[in-house]
């Protein structure tokens, strides 16, 4: 079991959850939204089951819950299946972050938005918010349609205390990806903290989402 929290605010909140529930597995923090780029999802909670050969055997995006009997049954069936000697497939996706490597790539490929985005995400994960903001800005200058770059820039600015600018950048990301519920909720969380703490008001979210969708439909 591996748990990943998509929290732009950093490790503090997810750490509280992990400690409260006494989890025995690692809880990772994805502040830059790396996983929603790699896995192409637009909301949480999600579950992905990967076998010992590194192959995805099950995935459910949005609405994953171990309280759902149908999901548990499917996972139990997969766990009961002997996998034998399936050769490990080459992994794809993003290479492990090392800022030095990312810096070299970004310098060697100054016109490549992906190289700038990789460097920006590495900075953000190391807590280097100012450097991250610079690199996300370069990525966005190179590819103005990149919702990942706009979202990451917003997160960097938020961590730097520039909330107004952060919200503007998150809104730009949401315009590029209007169905991305994670971006939308991050904006709400900052604009309406009272709807999230001490308890999350899901009824309010439904009403708010309908209102915003209606407004976006008219725009």
């Amino acid at each position: 079991m591996l748990s990943v929290a998509l929290d732009v605010g950093g490790a503090e909140k997810p750490r509280g959850f992990a400690e409260e529930f006494g989890v025995t597995f690692p809880t990772l923090v994805d502040a830059s939204g790396l996983l929603f780029r790699l896995y192409g999802f637009t909301a949480v909670p999600n579950g992905v089951y990967v076998d010992e050969a590194g192959i995805i055997r099950f995935q459910l995006f949005t609405g994953f819950s171990i309280d759902r009997e149908d999901i548990v049954a499917q996972l139990e069936m997969l766990l009961a299946t002997p996998t034998g000697t399936v050769p490990a497939a080459p992994t794809v996706g993003q290479q492990p972050f090392e800022i030095e490597v990312m810096l070299e790539q970004a310098a060697a490929h100054r016109d490549n938005p992906h190289a700038q985005l990789g460097l920006a995400e590495a900075y953000l994960q190391e807590g280097e918010s100012a450097h991250a903001a610079d690199a996300f800005t370069r990525a966005l200058d190179l590819d103005g349609e990149s919702a990942s770059a706009a979202f990451g820039l917003g997160t960097s600015l938020y961590q730097l205390g520039q909330t107004t600018e952060a919200l503007a950048s998150w809104r730009r990301a949401l315009r590029l990806e209007p169905d991305n519920f994670i971006i939308r909720k991050q904006i709400w969380r900052v604009e309406h903290p009272e709807k999230f703490y001490p308890t999350i008001d899901y009824d309010w979210q439904q009403v708010k989402l309908a209102e915003e969708k209606a407004a976006e439909g008219r725009a």
């Binding site: 079991m1 990943v4 750490r15 690692p26 923090v29 996983l35 790699l38 909670p45 992905v48 794809v92």
Partner: peptide
């Protein structure tokens, strides 16, 4: 194949997806 990635945990320790190679993993995103 599941995509490779590397992320810090809530205590700042960095984990790589590759460390879980050879194991069955349920990846929960929340």
């Amino acid at each position: 194949a599941a995509p490779d990635f590397s992320l810090p945990d809530v205590y700042g320790k960095r984990w790589s997806w590759r460390e879980f190679q050879g194991k069955r993993v349920l990846l929960f995103m929340w």
